[in-house]
Design a protein around this nucleic acid. Structure first.
Lengths: 366, 366
DNA sequence: TTGTATGCGTTATCAG
DNA sequence: CTGATAACGCATACAA
């Protein structure tokens, strides 16, 4: 790639070679119909010979559409250390990104990737700068505080991914937390016949957590069960927090519930850890259910029953909606909700534990 | 985001508001020094009030630099099914992408993400089209056959990621396969005192596989050990292939080696699976070592000793080199090699197996 | 120190 | 059906 004297070919070069005007070149490039077949062919030939590729910047300038959408996710510690619990969760946003990429390329758009927590410090500055490079923006939940998104959303098409759904300032694409927890409740109460349940919540400030908690309590109650005081089982999304809550409940002489639903998988792991330490058998004495279905939970013993989110779909849908917004097509709804699926494994008592080297999903095909 | 009558503010708007020319606005925006403080302030104020953000397309057009680099990875089946073995490997490229993003944003560039195997069918077309939107391209190994990259590399700055290193047409950033396998050999032979080893190879056509094989054999031999015939343990990167090879060796009455090194983790898993089925104890009777250190191997029993690649670093370095290329700084080398690290766990006999609910890396912090 | 004018590569609006 | 030519928003060489 030395600075070739010629530089990249432009439509002028193509026009010259084909013996037509640049307007004509532009026309064939953009698939216009009113063109003599011979002319079109000459141009195509020239394009091929010159290996011409239109300059995206020029195109974007001219038609005011860059055909690029950005996606912003929360930053990650820059360490290249061992994978941590934290990093395991990343697979979630990675899947979303992959889905978004697929959706974008299918629509003829490109995906610009950005972490918000990057070295640059201020996420708002980062996002704002992005604004000039894209036609629209997808923000993963929590990259920007609620009140910051409204002004931004007025300046550029934007969709919130996995947000609370209560935001009125931007279109939201998310998962049906309420329905998911209703499923869990139904499985535990109606399916297993449990009556006394508990719910381990994440940070109180989190809409995800409160939605899941409320739905679980409501569903369980409606089905004739009871949920132990939420405050007693309140945690903070982390394994450690959930472990602490569990231990305190145990030490305070609290009655062991028949089933424990957790607002995420990390906390379910923490709970199971403490239970194991206390000699409480899962699922024989108490069932445990998680949320997110992160990859590692299949390898626990027993494998964790959890709510699986359609992460790929989430990304793809977000892009579809965003591109629609960009191109002037209003979304079907300003709050798009995708279904979850309860992934049933051993921790709720449905299956025997799997103690082999590999879990059931590792099909060797031999 | 209704089509605001005004449209996004331009530097003309800013210039008007600040009572200066667009040239001056451009200057303060680009941090020029010869500017009266008062003037600069007026412009900055106007920028703030208008919430002006420069149009990336216009900027790119004008200065011939889009400040965007693209990264192309191999496509993924669009299914949103359960994670498969295949998908577990994705974390590798996901980490690379994250590293690349971090590197790019630190250098003031953005990262354009593209899968090659996308729905569009032809990867070469996809990549070629990308060319117009970016200043440079990073290709993950195998997205394009060797002979296809040369012509492309002549037209746009490009770095190959995790390639063979033998490509002369583009700069390569990769991992030191040879040193990694030398480490493995040293650990097995010098560390554990094993003499009779075996190596499970991937597809014969793969440079990664042959490099690893050659290095392993050479190192073991030099240290006074022997390696069983490579052909007997030849596989195809998959768990199934490795399982087959292992079973055949066992059934043919082949002597059990003291240690088995595998060209990747999937195959190590296949090997362990068959050994377990045959009642051969790992690591007591035979040690097994993998390559890549994919997340799941820590949860196997015993946990797999494996070669960890600095995937994040790989991505960041690739971007650094690429941006250097774009901006006219020649790379220190056309074949940049990063070190690996042997991650020692139980499968080689170094540690006792861990049979708890959680592996050692799950520190609950309680 | 600041303003004027030109070019960057495309698309699109006119004529012809 | 095709060819001039004017934007598009910004950076910059050249003047002042």
């Amino acid at each position: 790639m030395e600075p070739s004297g010629a530089g990249a070919p432009t439509i002028y070069d193509v026009a010259d070679r084909a013996g037509v005007s640049i307007a004509t070149v532009s026309r064939v490039l953009n698939g216009h119909t009113n063109l003599r077949a011979a002319t079109r062919q000459r141009v195509m030939d020239a394009v091929g010979e010159l290996k011409f590729v239109p300059n995206g910047a020029a195109r974007g300038l001219s038609q005011g559409l860059k055909k690029v959408v950005g996606i912003v996710f929360d930053g990650v510690p820059a360490t290249d250390d061992l994978l941590s619990v934290e990093e395991e969760t990343l697979l979630f946003s990675d899947s979303i990104v992959r889905g978004a990429e697929a959706g974008a390329s299918q629509l003829g758009y490109s995906l610009l990737l950005n972490s918000a927590g990057g070295s640059s410090g201020d996420p708002e500055r980062t996002i704002n700068g992005l604004t000039g490079k894209v036609d629209g923006l997808i923000l993963l939940d929590r990259v920007l505080p609620e009140r910051r998104v409204a002004p931004l959303a007025k300046r550029i098409p934007m969709v919130l991914l996995a947000g609370s759904g209560r935001t009125r300032s931007a279109v939201t694409v998310r998962v049906d937390n309420a329905a998911a927890m209703a499923d869990v409740a139904a499985h535990l109460v109606s399916g297993h016949g449990f009556r006394r349940l508990a719910f381990v919540s994440g940070l109180a400030a989190s809409p995800d957590s409160t939605t899941r908690a409320q739905s679980f309590v409501a569903s369980v109650t409606e089905l004739g069960g009871t949920v132990q005081p939420l405050e007693a089982w309140a945690a903070d999304w982390t394994s450690g927090g959930a472990a602490r809550a569990t231990r305190q409940w145990l030490e305070s002489g609290g009655e062991l519930p028949e089933g424990i639903a957790c607002a995420n998988d990390q906390m379910a792991i923490g709970v199971m850890h403490v239970l194991a330490g206390a000699g409480v058998k899962v699922p024989e004495e108490v069932a445990v259910v998680g949320f997110d279905d992160i990859p590692v939970v299949r390898h626990l013993s027993p494998a964790l029953t959890s709510v699986r989110q359609p992460s790929r779909q989430l990304g793809a849908t977000a892009v579809e909606v965003l591109v629609g917004l960009v191109e002037g097509r209003p979304p079907a709804s300003r709050d798009i909700v995708l279904p979850t699926q309860l992934q049933i494994r051993g921790s709720c008592g449905c299956r025997a534990e799997h103690h082999g080297l590999l879990s059931e999903t590792w099909d060797l095909g031999v």
